[in-house]
Computed example of a mutant assay.
Amino acid sequence: MDKPLKTPPPYPIASVDHALRAATVLQMEGGATVSQIAERLGVARSTAHRILAMLVYRDFAVQDDDRLYRAGPVLELAAHSQSLVSRLRTAALPHLRRVVDLLDETTNLTVRTGDTTRFIASVECRQALRVGSREGMVFPAHRTTAGLLLLADLSDEELEEVYDIEHYRDRPADRPDLGRLRTELKRLRSNGFVVNKERSERGLTAVGVPVRDRDGTALAGLSVSMPSVRYDARRLQSLVRALNNTARAVEKDLAEGR
């Protein structure tokens, strides 16, 4: 079995994790208040204030006159508040929470950039044994549920460009077998959904569907993730139906600018 792509450090430092997650929020969403950061991190307002003050000191954040914190010079690739990623996340979050209420499994929204995917929203379920938030994490596209969905939307020529052999000259082992990948993506296009059994992380199974724009282009992948021991193939149709209904609701709100 493949080694998991994301292994938590043996001695995690909560304060560092909080600071990195706060920086991710500012980069992806354009800005946040102290109270919003405190709520997202699950910490006291005073703790969130200290985290943001350190980010400002190190130029990872700046504070506006209206006391809103935004990405600083170090995060110069920060998303504008009206960027596609920000609008996707805003439109999707209420629906992700409803999926969690319905299925009681962690739900994610993921976008692709080149040969990688990034989780832009993640809502954890309440079960003791659960898949934790992947928000802000980056994985190889061909190893993730959403990545496969989004790669399946590409033409053969576009896929060749994404996996141009020259890009992998120094890391050839990271380049997937394009013949096998094309065969898999063809099947995924026919199915309209993906079942990812421990492909990205050991012990994790995910099911996903695409979120599309008005012209039918896949913008993101919507997925539900669970411990593999809890996945039941007999529930697949109901999982896909719930995800498809949610994807259509996200698309509607995105089109209406909500």
Rank of each mutant, 00 (worst) to 15 (best):
M1F: 03
M1V: 10
D2S: 07
P10N: 07
Y11D: 15
D17P: 00
A22K: 01
A23H: 01
L26Y: 06
G30M: 10
A32V: 12
A32T: 09
T33I: 06
V34E: 15
A38S: 13
E39G: 03
A44Y: 09
R50I: 10
L52M: 08
A53Y: 00
M54R: 15
V56F: 04
V62R: 15
Q63S: 14
D65S: 09
R70G: 13
A71E: 04
P73D: 13
V74T: 12
L75I: 02
E76A: 12
Q82E: 09
T90P: 00
T107W: 11
R126N: 14
Q127W: 07
M137A: 09
R143P: 02
T144V: 09
T145K: 10
L151P: 05
A152C: 06
S155I: 06
L159V: 07
E161Y: 08
Y163K: 08
Y168E: 00
R182I: 03
T183N: 05
L185W: 09
L185E: 00
S190F: 04
G208D: 03
A220Y: 02
L222P: 12
S223M: 11
M226H: 08
P227A: 11
V229K: 10
R230F: 15
Q237F: 05
L239W: 04
A242K: 12
N245R: 12
T246I: 08
A247W: 01
V250E: 02
A255M: 09
